[in-house]
Amino acid sequence: MNISTKVTAMVVSSLLLLFAALVSISYYEHQMNAKHVEKDLINSIIGGKQVELAGELAIAATMVKQIEKNYKEHGLDTETLRKDLLDYVGAVRFGAGGRNYISIYDTKGIAIINPGNPKFNGTSRIHAADVNGLRYIEKLVNTDEFVQFTFAGENGNIRRLGKSQKLNVAGEDMVFMAIADLENAYRIGGEQVKVLKDEMIAGLKVFVLHEQVKTVTLYKLT
């Protein structure tokens, strides 16, 4: 092997190492970018869910107080007022497909109405826990913060977001709870990441082809 051939081999070898390093760096950067996009997108959707839940609770509370005011002005009894208000809240639906609803609990965690699971009506749910042991009803009863929790479903875990608001209705302290499904947020985030990864792989293929052409060209020139 003459000097020229040795030099050429060294140059090509160095270029191949540099090429491999550039591919690795590019792949890592795209992976990190995809993860950031997924996180930001999910947080954005969850933020929208928070606005939705808070808004629905505020609307329900305003309507309940207005109905209560009208009943009192017309001298209707408290029991009739309570029943009609619970019927009104129990019929409220919101969110995609009208799948979300408002439940009402007392301050000890006993379900007054749970439109989605009426079997719980009249029972204590204060100790209800999610798959991670979070006692989400207790937390919603005792705080007005947003609470994320997870249920075990037939096809995997189901992530949800809850918000509560305390309200005195017909002389009784109640806790209004609105809960939304978060699985759609994570699904959209995952789909967006897949699109980004597909674009990344396509871009890397172009990059690899381009660098291979440059390497072969340089080899021929030397």
Rank of each mutant, 00 (worst) to 15 (best):
I126D: 04
E73C: 05
I137C: 00
Y27P: 11
G203P: 04
V23E: 11
K35P: 04
A129G: 03
R160D: 07
S26V: 07
A128L: 15
A34E: 03
L86S: 03
T8V: 06
T215F: 07
M174I: 07
E138S: 07
A152C: 10
G109F: 00
E29M: 12
Q50M: 08
I112C: 06
L209S: 14
L76D: 11
T5N: 11
S124M: 00
Y27T: 14
D84C: 06
S14D: 10
H74R: 15
D130T: 06
G97Y: 03
E145W: 04
K49W: 02
A128K: 09
G75P: 03
N114K: 04
I45T: 01
I67C: 12
R93I: 06
S26C: 10
K220W: 11
N117E: 13
K205T: 07
H36Y: 14
M63T: 12
R125S: 05
Y28E: 14
H210E: 14
A178D: 04
A61E: 14
H30I: 10
F207E: 05
T107A: 00
N43Y: 01
L209K: 12
L57H: 00
L22W: 11
A96M: 08
L134F: 11
F176Q: 06
V208A: 10
L204S: 04
K65P: 07
L15G: 15
I25L: 15
K6M: 14
V89Y: 02
R159K: 14
E79V: 14
Y105F: 05
P118V: 05
E211Y: 15
F94N: 02
L221K: 13
G47H: 03
A96T: 13
V175H: 03
K220H: 08
T78I: 13
Y71H: 05
Q50H: 05
I67A: 13
S24D: 10
A61H: 07
H30Y: 13
V208R: 09
N70P: 08
S26W: 07
M10I: 11
Y136S: 02
Q192S: 12
Q148G: 11
G109Q: 01
G75M: 04
V193D: 06
E138D: 07
V51Y: 13
M10W: 08
I201N: 10
S164H: 03
T107V: 04
I104N: 02
Q212K: 12
T222K: 08
N168D: 07
Y219R: 06
N168A: 10
E29D: 12
Q212F: 15
R159D: 08
M174A: 11
T217L: 13
A34P: 02
E73N: 08
K220M: 10
K35D: 12
V213R: 11
F151P: 00
G75F: 04
L16F: 15
A185F: 00
Y136V: 01
R187Q: 12
K194M: 12
T215N: 09
Y101L: 15
M32C: 09
A111E: 01
